[in-house]
Simulated scan of single mutants.
Amino acid sequence: MNRSDVIPSLVLSSYALGRIAAQDAGNDAPAAQWRVLSLLEQSGPKRVGELATAARTTQPGMTRLIGVLERDGLVLRSSVPEDSRAIAVGITEAGSDALQTWRTEFRETLAPRFADLGEDDWQALTRAAEVLAAHTTIDSTGASQ
């Protein structure tokens, strides 16, 4: 594989793994739900506009998703102390628990697909995951670094 093809291949493979794991696990929650909960867990409470930007969606779409997540008890809206007109969204304990359950479910669902890997392949995947994590961090505004 050419160097210029590696990153797109990783991204497409990651999307495919996510779809496969959701389908195999019977998890019908929208992927956007897990992305938002992960972002909130990683970076703390955010305004709806910041979440929409970070998730690459519209503010009305994010507002609808936040409404569903709030109704399910996974996030909580609260006022922003420095701006009385602004509302921040934070993950709740139930949201963190649901996110952890989802991660465990995905791990268990995908494990059989990788059971035949040897130590060298696991080391390569581990290193790839470390490199990707280092290049996909989110700063305090919700922007990628």
Rank of each mutant, 00 (worst) to 15 (best):
T109C: 03
T136Q: 10
A54E: 05
P81Q: 02
S13M: 14
V48K: 08
D139K: 07
S140V: 04
A111R: 11
G90Y: 06
R3W: 02
G73S: 14
L132W: 14
S96W: 00
E93A: 09
T63W: 01
A124Q: 14
G90P: 10
Q145E: 07
D139W: 08
R71V: 03
A111W: 02
L10A: 09
A128T: 12
G142N: 05
A124L: 14
E82W: 01
R3E: 12
G49L: 08
E50S: 07
A22S: 13
V36K: 00
N2Q: 15
L10K: 02
T58D: 07
P30H: 12
F106W: 06
E50N: 00
R107V: 08
A94R: 14
L39P: 04
G61C: 05
L40R: 12
T137H: 07
A32V: 11
S43G: 02
L65V: 09
R107I: 07
P45S: 09
L39C: 05
A111N: 05
S13F: 15
G73K: 13
Q42H: 13
A111T: 05
D5G: 09
M62P: 01
V80Y: 12
G142Q: 06
S96Y: 00
T136N: 15
A111L: 04
T101W: 10
G142P: 06
A133V: 13
G73D: 10
A129I: 04
S78K: 14
G67P: 03
A129V: 03
T104V: 09
A25W: 03
G18D: 01
S79V: 11
M1S: 14
P112G: 04
A111S: 07
S140L: 01
S9Y: 14
N2I: 06
R64K: 12
P81F: 00
R47V: 03
R64T: 04
R107W: 01
W122I: 15
A133L: 15
G61W: 02
R77P: 03
F114C: 01
A143L: 06
G18I: 00
L65D: 04
L37M: 13
V68K: 15
T141R: 11
A54I: 06
L74S: 00
A25C: 04
L12R: 09
A32S: 12
D72N: 11
S144A: 01
S78G: 13
A115C: 02
L51R: 00
A29Y: 04
I138E: 09
A88H: 09
S84P: 13
A143K: 12
E41M: 07
I7Y: 11
Q59V: 13
E82H: 02
T141D: 09
E93R: 11
I20F: 15
A55Y: 00
E50P: 01
A134E: 15
M1T: 12
L39D: 05
A32E: 08
R77E: 03
F106D: 00
I87N: 14
F106Q: 13
V36P: 03
A94N: 12
